[in-house]
Simulated scan of single mutants.
Amino acid sequence: MSSNVGSGVRGPYAKGIQRRQEILDRTLDVVATRGIDGTSLRAIGDAIGISHAALRHYFSSREALLVEVLRERDVLSGKTLTEVPGVVAGMTAVADRNVQEPALVTLYTTLLGASVEPGNEEARVFFTERFDSARADLAAQLRDELAASGRYSDADLEQVASLIIAAFDGLQVQWLLDRSIDIAGTLRLLERVL
């Protein structure tokens, strides 16, 4: 009897994890070159050299795949937010990274818009949970920052968090339309106003 304990993941399971990760990594490339409308599961499969059936083995639908790409990118953004001190400074760092990946911003914005329409339940659930979590996390960070600085605010910090998120997302949309928009600079202005 053989055991993989202590030796890392190997075999077919590891290959499946690796293939799934490759699909996630390459999907954003397909979005970048073909746009959102050109990212059917079949088109993604063709572009990355995997059959439609194999792609469906990992993701039940195009929406599920695209949501998972965003979910994975949120993990990276979460790491950035915890590494950079300050709520707005962390979001500014994420914005600086996002402008290096216009396809990511396009994917996020397009799926967010689609999530409010019937038939896009996976995206709706993803964004509803994402905003709930982001508001709670930002409010807690704001509370900690206020306490650490000895300041007090009677503002509802969940509402302040909503404003910060709205500013961030709105600035990304503006940037998609006009690349001269300075997301990070505008977020720093918001920090001074707050």
Rank of each mutant, 00 (worst) to 15 (best):
R42S: 11
R42H: 06
A43S: 12
A43Y: 03
D46Q: 09
D46L: 11
A47V: 11
A47F: 08
G49H: 04
G49I: 11
I50Q: 03
I50C: 05
I50G: 01
I50W: 03
S51H: 05
S51C: 08
S51L: 08
H52P: 00
A53V: 13
A54Y: 06
L55T: 07
R56C: 12
R56W: 13
H57R: 14
H57Y: 15
Y58I: 10
Y58D: 12
S60N: 08
S60E: 12
S61P: 04
R62A: 01
A64S: 14
L65A: 09
L65W: 06
L65T: 09
E68R: 08
V69N: 01
V69R: 02
V69G: 02
E72A: 13
E72Q: 12
D74A: 12
V75C: 05
V75Q: 09
L76H: 10
L76M: 13
L76S: 12
S77N: 13
S77F: 13
G78F: 13
K79V: 15
T80I: 14
T80Y: 01
L81V: 05
T82P: 04
T82R: 08
T82H: 04
E83I: 13
E83Q: 14
E83T: 15
V84F: 05
V84A: 11
V84S: 10
V84Y: 04
P85Q: 12
G86D: 09
V87G: 08
V87D: 09
V88W: 04
V88D: 01
V88S: 00
A89S: 10
A89D: 14
A89E: 11
G90A: 05
G90Y: 01
G90L: 03
T92Q: 05
A93M: 06
A93R: 01
V94F: 02
V94Y: 01
V94Q: 02
A95W: 03
A95P: 04
D96L: 14
R97M: 08
R97W: 02
R97Q: 08
R97S: 07
N98Q: 13
N98D: 15
V99Q: 11
V99F: 05
E101S: 12
P102L: 07
L104V: 14
V105P: 10
V105G: 09
T106G: 05
Y108N: 15
Y108R: 15
Y108L: 13
Y108H: 15
Y108M: 13
T109M: 11
T109A: 15
T109H: 09
L112K: 07
L112S: 07
G113K: 00
G113I: 00
A114C: 08
S115W: 02
V116Q: 12
V116N: 08
V116E: 11
E117G: 05
E117D: 12
E117W: 09
P118M: 06
G119C: 06
G119F: 10
N120M: 10
E121C: 07
E121H: 11
E121R: 08
E122P: 00
E122A: 06
A123Y: 00
A123V: 02
V125M: 06
V125I: 10
F126L: 04
T128K: 07
T128W: 07
T128L: 10
